[in-house]
Simulated scan of single mutants.
Amino acid sequence: MNTYRSLNGHGEPRATWLYEQSNVLNVSRQGRIASVVGGALLTASGINNITKHPFRSLLRLIAGGYLLYRGISGNCPVSAYAGRRMSDRHNSTVNVRAKFIVDKPRDEVYAFWRRLENLPHFMRHLASITEHDDYHSHWIVKGPGGIGTLEWDAEIIKDEEGALIGWRSAPGSNIATAGKVTFSDALDGGTEIEVVIAYRPPAGYVGTGLAWLLNSAFHRMVEKDVMRFKHYVETGEITA
C-alpha cells in the first residue's frame, strides 16, 4: 500500500490518498496460453533479427517479454491499472485533514463551529446549511466555479461541549459524507483545532453529473475552506 500526504505550511498532514497495487489473477486460462505462445514467438523473432533490424527487434523483445509475463503470472498490469482507475473513480473519497491553532478561547471557537449555519460564511464549497434542530440539518454543496450542486440531510452523531463535534450524512442520503472537529487548549494560548472532512460520491455516480466531487479542484477548494476558518474567526474577514 502506498500513502501520499499533502502538508500545510506548518508541516501538518492536510490530506491523505491511499491506493493498493493489484497482484490478482486477471487473465483467463485461454488468455494466458495465447500470451505465452505469442510472447515466445515475438521473443524468438526479436532474437533472430536483432542484427538486421535492431530497433524493430527491440520492440518485439519488449512486447514478447510482456506477453510472457502476462501468460506465466496470470496478471496483466495494464488491466489491473485500468481496473484500479475505474475503481478509484467509483470508490475514491475526498479526504481533507487540517490541524492549526486559532487565537481565540476554546469555548468561543467551539460555539462558533457548533452553530453549523456559520460554516458557509468561510467555506465557499458550502452553498448553505439549514439547521432543523440541534442535531439535524440540510446541506447544499457546490462544485468548483459553481458547476454542479449536491444536497443531503446530515446529523450530528457526537457532541462533547468544548471538545468535539462529529457529523455524517443521514441514512438514505445520495452521498456518504462525514466530518469531525476536535478542540483543545494550545500550549501557548488559543485553541488547537483538528478538522477531518470526507466526501464519498454514491455508487454509479459516473454519468450523473457528480464527477466534480473527485475533481482535484474541488479537493483543493475544501482544503482552502478549512484553513480559511482560522482567519475568519480571528478577524471576522474572509480571505481570498
Rank of each mutant, 00 (worst) to 15 (best):
L116H: 12
L116Q: 13
N118E: 01
P120R: 15
H121C: 09
M123G: 04
M123Q: 09
H125Y: 09
H125N: 10
L126P: 00
A127D: 12
A127T: 15
I129K: 09
I129G: 00
T130M: 03
E131F: 08
E131A: 14
E131T: 11
H132A: 04
H132F: 11
D133G: 04
D133S: 05
D134H: 11
Y135D: 11
Y135Q: 09
H136V: 13
H138I: 01
W139D: 00
V141C: 05
V141F: 11
K142Q: 12
G145Q: 11
G145N: 13
G146N: 14
G146S: 04
G146C: 03
I147N: 14
I147V: 15
I147K: 14
G148I: 12
T149Y: 07
L150I: 13
L150F: 14
A154V: 11
I156Y: 04
I156P: 03
I156H: 07
I157F: 03
D159S: 10
D159P: 03
D159I: 09
E160H: 05
E161L: 13
E161Y: 14
G162R: 15
G162I: 07
G162C: 02
G162V: 03
A163E: 09
L164I: 03
I165M: 12
I165K: 15
G166N: 07
G166H: 11
G166L: 10
W167I: 07
A170S: 12
P171R: 06
G172Y: 02
G172R: 04
S173I: 14
S173Y: 05
N174C: 00
N174H: 08
I175P: 00
A178H: 15
K180Q: 08
V181C: 02
V181L: 06
T182H: 03
F183C: 01
S184H: 15
A186I: 12
A186T: 13
D188L: 10
G190T: 08
G190E: 05
E192T: 09
I193R: 15
E194R: 13
V195A: 07
V195K: 06
V196M: 08
I197V: 13
Y199A: 02
Y199Q: 07
Y199V: 06
Y199N: 08
P201S: 02
A203I: 10
A203T: 11
V206D: 11
G207Q: 06
G209C: 01
G209W: 04
L210C: 10
L210E: 15
L210M: 13
A211I: 07
W212N: 08
W212D: 05
L213W: 04
N215A: 10
A217P: 02
A217T: 10
A217N: 10
A217K: 09
H219L: 09
H219P: 00
H219F: 02
H219I: 03
R220M: 07
V222L: 05
V222E: 01
E223K: 05
K224H: 06
K224P: 00
D225S: 10
D225R: 15
V226F: 01
V226Y: 02
M227Q: 15
R228C: 01
F229C: 09
F229G: 03
K230G: 00
K230W: 01
Y232M: 03
V233I: 10
V233Q: 04
V233G: 00
E234Y: 12
G236N: 05
E237S: 09
